[in-house]
Structure formats: structure tokens, C-alpha cells
């Protein structure tokens, strides 16, 4: 089956088995191996990409379901010479050790900061009718779908706080 979609701003057309997940389409068909396969069941967040402006688990989505849609992966956020501010902050704050979960962490972190700005509530939001703030508790709660075996969480939270312009 064919699927036409836009990945990192480039129109792509692929012929795939219907079983191909968005994750496998990115990694195996488009050689965009920045997005990682961790658990492949939506539990670890290593495969997090941004689809139509929202972070999702690429492992729990079929490629054919993205016909006509837009996907942004870690490769579409910045380059070694021109890093995305969140990528730069992860480096400054040592927000990783082995790096395997990092592309998912960064895609998720960027989307989390957008979600807070958009007023989307979380489990850590005390007043549903007030604008959520980029507090440490808010960011930690919202990042719970991304696990890090190396335990870089506090440095990730610091990187996010810096980008959000708040104290960690």
C-alpha cells in the first residue's frame, strides 16, 4: 500500500506492508534512524516524534494512517551546526548518558513546552482554570512517558527549565 506524507518538510511516497508502523517507516524505509525503537509498545517513549504538531509514540501508529499528514523527527529539529534550543540545552545540562532515549526525550520536551504554552492541563496542574506554568513538577509529570535508563531526569528537567526561562 502507498502512503504519501511529509517528513521533516520533505514530501515522501512509500510503498509499505500495511503492518509497517510509522516508526519502522521512518527507520527502515527512510533511514531516519534518529528515532529509536525501545519497547515498541508505547511504554518507553524512545520513538516519540511530532505528528501534526503533537508528540506521539511512532511505534503505536501505522504508517498508512499518516497519509497526507506531517511528521517531524529529531533530524528535522536541528543539525550539528544549527541546534534546536532544546538540543543545545540538553548538551549544556548533560541531559543524557548513553543517548538512546535522547531523540524521544527532545521531541517530547519540545512538545511539552508547547503544551504548557497552549494551556493544556496535566495531572500536576492544581487549578484547571488557570494557565499551567512551566514548573519542575509540571515538566516532570508531562515527561513521564519518556524513560531514561541512565537516569538523566534531573538534568533533562534543568535543560527544559532553561529553555522555558524558569528556575529548575
Amino acid at each position: 500500500m502507498t502512503v504519501n506524507f511529509e517528513v521533516n518538510g520533505i514530501a515522501r511516497s512509500l510503498t509499505v506492508d500495511t503492518r509497517t508502523t510509522l516508526l519502522d517507516a521512518l527507520r527502515e524505509h527512510l533511514q531516519l534512524t534518529g528515532t529509536k525503537k525501545g519497547c515498541d509498545h508505547g511504554q518507553c517513549g524512545a520513538c516519540t516524534v511530532i505528528a501534526d504538531g503533537r508528540r506521539i509514540n511512532a511505534c503505536l501508529s501505522l504508517a498508512v494512517m499518516h497519509e497526507g499528514r506531517k511528521v517531524t523527527t529529531i533530524e528535522g529539529l536541528g543539525t550539528p551546526d544549527l541546534l534546536h534550543p532544546v538540543q543545545a540545552a540538553f548538551i549544556r545540562h548533560d541531559g543524557y548518558q548513553c543517548g538512546y532515549c535522547t531523540p524521544g526525550q527532545i521531541c517530547s520536551a519540545i512538545a511539552v513546552l508547547q503544551e504548557i504554552r497552549a494551556g493544556i492541563p496535566s495531572h500536576a496542574t492544581e487549578d484547571l482554570m488557570a494557565r499551567p506554568q512551566a514548573t519542575n513538577m509540571e515538566m516532570r509529570e508531562r515527561m513521564s512517558g519518556n524513560i531514561c535508563r541512565c537516569g538523566a531526569y534531573s538534568n533533562i528537567a534543568q535543560a527544559m527549565a532553561e529553555v522555558a526561562g524558569v528556575k529548575a
Partner: peptide, 8 residues
């Protein structure tokens, strides 16, 4: 769930 799952 998680933020990623709630988005889908």
C-alpha cells in the same frame, strides 16, 4: 496514560 498516548 502519558502525554504521547493522550495525544492519539
Amino acid at each position: 496514560a502519558s502525554g504521547q498516548l493522550r495525544n492519539k
